[in-house]
Amino acid sequence: MLTSHRKQQLLSILKRQGQLIAKEVSQAMGVSEDTIRRDLRELAQEGLLQRVHGGALPSSPAVADFAGRERITPEGKVAIGRAAAKMIQSGQVVILDGGTTARQLARHIPLDLKATVITHSPTIALELINHLNIEVILIGGRLFRHSVVAVGASAMEAIAHIHADVFFMGVTGVHPRAGLTTGDYEEAAIKRALSHAAAETIVLASSEKLNAASPYAVVPLAEISGIITERSAEKSLLQPYVKLGITVTRA
């Protein structure tokens, strides 16, 4: 079998099954595990999958820069943001993550809502500048330009003193096996701290992030209470999360 054909088969299996186990695939294809592992390494270098111990998971396409991510399923992100904004209740202390979907959430918060919004994203803070009934607390630190958020020791120190009602989290990957993941080690640590600082965590996940994984773990699925995605998301992609008892909202 030609290498190109074999790689296409690997990607097809990954898309169909949501994961790939090198030993099983090598036996099915009649080639060595070393050959399959080499194929997986090369596909990972092309950004077509995410390697994990023993095999691979689908790679998240949501790893472009901030401007690039705003062009990915913009209508879906608007719908997710609108649905999430409706969940915020008067008087709550809410943590908003950075990112393009969270930006849509901020844009859809009613102007008359009274609440406190904590964010480590200057972009989110600016979206709320005209919400006079929203107290905005901006967490500072080193600017991570890719996501336009603050990271680092000072950000972690500030987060340690927060007890919020809910955290609306953005990630680049949501996967039944890998949990919630993102593409930067330090940003993953900040998201994890923000999640632990809130009574509940709700994940904002456009459909391209479902059944996909990135290199760095944020929190396991057991630590979140809800996922908001587009109405167009395939039900088969959502079933694993529903079975885990996670509330899935299709916006």
Rank of each mutant, 00 (worst) to 15 (best):
I190W: 06
R192V: 06
I202T: 07
S206N: 14
A213K: 00
V203K: 03
S232I: 14
L204P: 01
V218E: 07
S206C: 10
S206T: 09
N211S: 12
L221C: 00
K209D: 04
Y216S: 04
E230S: 07
H196G: 09
R231S: 15
H196D: 12
I224K: 02
V219I: 15
A222I: 12
P220H: 05
A212E: 00
P220V: 04
I224P: 00
L210T: 01
S206V: 07
S232Q: 12
E200C: 15
A222S: 15
S206K: 05
T201P: 11
S207Y: 00
K191I: 09
I224G: 01
A222G: 12
A198H: 04
A217V: 09
A213Y: 08
A199C: 11
S195C: 11
V219E: 04
A198F: 07
I190N: 05
A213W: 01
S195H: 08
G226W: 11
V203P: 00
P220Y: 06
I190V: 15
V203Y: 02
N211V: 07
A217C: 10
K191L: 13
V203H: 03
A199G: 07
A193Y: 00
S214P: 03
P220D: 10
E230R: 08
S232E: 14
E200Y: 13
A213S: 12
A193D: 11
S214Q: 00
I227A: 03
V218I: 15
V218A: 12
A217D: 14
A213G: 12
A217H: 15
S195Q: 02
E200G: 11
S225V: 10
I224D: 00
E208L: 11
A199Y: 10
I190D: 08
A212M: 06
K191H: 14
I227W: 04
S225I: 05
A205F: 03
E230Q: 14
L204K: 01
V203E: 04
E208Q: 14
P215A: 01
I190K: 01
V218R: 07
N211H: 13
L221Y: 01
